[in-house]
Design a binder for these strands. Structure first.
Lengths: 343, 343
DNA sequence: TACCTTTGTTTAAACGTTTAAGCAAATATA
DNA sequence: TATATTTGCTTAAACGTTTAAACAAAGGTA
């Protein structure tokens, strides 16, 4: 019942030439006559020939497949990065395999195994939040497969990295809040063990010092930055003896949770408490009040990550010239923190 | 420089046995002694052996890869479907390759070619909005590769399909609006050529008849259902001689656009105009007022789609017993349409 | 004429597996 | 004891390509 697929040999038989000639004709080899090439292409068309990737990849040692690992795809940031990686790589004849870790270390390891097993030519990844053991990533490196990290990276791995300047973003945010008259700025941060969140925390504390604001331990919290985390941490901040007059949340989802709590408590935003998120997810512009956030240049990150990979395949000599690209983030000021225009 | 990878032969050489024995040992073949199996596994571990998918897939004719085509991944619906497809298939030893069509027919065709080229064992797809030419999908069928459609399907293709009951969902919505006292219900619909949107439109008109409401042509519009489309269509409806007192939008993003316009015009929701969306995207629960919407059972759809595929691989005889699974959708009533509880 | 090049092709091996078939040794059966 | 069965392996072919090497024929050069 199952249709058997047309191979290069079937084409060869029709034309009474060798399979090798067909292969070369299809690859436009200069040593094949135009007559033969035209005939081959014609027959290939007629027989609905579909090249077998498995065979060619096995023989040539190049799969032309690139694995992409993201914590999840249902965020605008990751989905946009992926789209741009794909765009750049498709042009160069590469296809991508997307896998989601769902922020799980175990799933991430499985994904890596699958990708290695599938013989991808390279891996572009953003690490799960809970990932601390880097051995799975070391494995990629040890196999000599190009590895590029973006957003959630790790210095210790010593691989290419594309991301935004998290440290400086915190400075931008604090500065913006100070300019809006805030004096007691809290930070609902991510876990310090994740490099980007650590950088945001460092940026936050250093910026406070710079502006000679009190560095109050109870104003700095760590969490997984889910909506629920945002709610819980906001409630905690509100119950302090002296609550903050501004909250900088290291992720938009948690910022949304915080916003919900503030609205439920009828606290005026930004007058009583100003709010800033991170990531510029579309919903920050949809809710009331619209949330100030940081745009992470997903388009640029995607393109740069793809290009970083392409650099590896272009050169045969792997002279490990590391690329660390840090882009400047952009603060998108909206109602939730802008006291000046809301007057 | 490039590390060369360990193969089955390397393991064989170490143990002075044949490659075939190693292959069988790794597959736990009953004809291999436990002693050998243990030894093989040990050496495989030591040499960091990684099976080569290309070789085994080529030889066995089964890639254990399933292609998934979606219009986009940055919607909660598709991302959730994907996650559940993956979950079910992983358990059975399959991995998935995700591709996005970005609602483009051309990109969809490219994706299909890539997937066929990659020798996937099956394809699970949701069609792009603009797709009308089905030849690319016919190609999949003609190669004898299992094809399962979900959400955005096509009856003419005669393949398995999993989706919700769009026609009936419209009835639920209209009924709900009628119960809330609405008498002039508009529909901002998708393009009629897409089956699901056509069904929603049919459901809308039939439900109006059923409740003896006027079927006004100017209250029914078609569009691509982007946020901007929602804005434009809402503005049009407001400029009518007698504007509607309820608007049923066939997609949440367009519903959001409509909501923005209503808020800008200071129109009371739901008192003056009630609003209902479709898809139950997370943001419907985040905005003010929260938008009533239809939950599409993404979890169930993902699982069922994966199982539909698995049915094909389990049986060798392809006795084309078609699965058409239509799930009941669920109306999630929120502030934007609920006049009773908002009193 | 003899030799070199170019053109267009074929041959054969290789990529890393799987698997049908074969076979020797050990064990069971009669 | 002779024969059958089971156990545990080996051999070799195959999957569909690519590619290095070989080579015949045609054309060019000295």
């Amino acid at each position: 019942m199952k249709k058997k697929k047309t191979t290069i040999k079937d084409i060869a038989n029709v034309l009474h030439i060798s399979a090798a000639a067909v292969s070369k004709a299809l690859h436009d080899d200069s040593r094949i006559s135009d007559k033969t090439k035209i005939a081959v292409r014609q027959v290939a068309e007629n027989l609905q020939y579909q090249p077998n990737h498995l065979a060619s990849a096995l023989r040539s040692g190049k799969s032309h497949l690139v694995g992409v690992i993201v914590p999840r795809t249902n965020s605008n940031f990751f989905s946009s990065v992926i789209q741009n990686i794909e765009e750049v790589l498709n042009k160069k004849g590469y296809n991508i395999i997307i896998t989601q870790s769902n922020e799980s270390y175990q799933k991430e390891c499985d994904s890596i195994d699958t990708l290695l097993y599938t013989q991808v030519d390279g891996i572009i990844a953003s690490m799960a939040n809970e990932t601390v053991d880097l051995s799975a990533y070391e494995k990629i490196k040890s196999k000599g497969i190009p590895l590029i990290l973006f957003d959630r990276g790790e210095n210790d791995l010593n691989v290419d990295y594309i991301g935004i300047d998290d440290y400086n973003s915190s400075h931008l945010i604090v500065e913006h809040l100070v300019n809006n008259g805030c004096k007691r700025i809290a930070h609902i941060g991510g876990y310090k063990r994740t490099r980007i969140f650590n950088n945001r925390i460092r940026g936050y504390t250093d910026a406070l010092k710079k502006h000679q604001l009190p560095l109050d331990e109870e104003l700095l919290t760590e969490s997984g930055l889910t909506i629920e985390d945002g709610r819980v941490k906001m409630l905690e901040l509100l119950s302090l003896a002296t609550p903050p007059d501004a909250v900088y949340v290291a992720g938009d989802h948690a910022a949304l949770g915080a916003l919900q709590v503030l609205k439920e408590k009828n606290i005026k935003i930004p007058e009583e408490i100003a709010l800033v998120g991170f990531g510029n997810e579309p919903f920050t512009d949809m809710v009331t009040p619209r949330i100030t956030s940081v745009h992470q240049h997903s388009v640029e990150i995607g393109k740069q990550a793809a290009n970083a990979f392409l650099k590896y395949v272009d050169r045969d000599t792997i002279d490990q010239q590391l690329n660390k690209i840090i882009l400047d983030a952009k603060l998108i000021v909206r109602d939730s923190s802008n006291k000046k225009t809301s007057l």
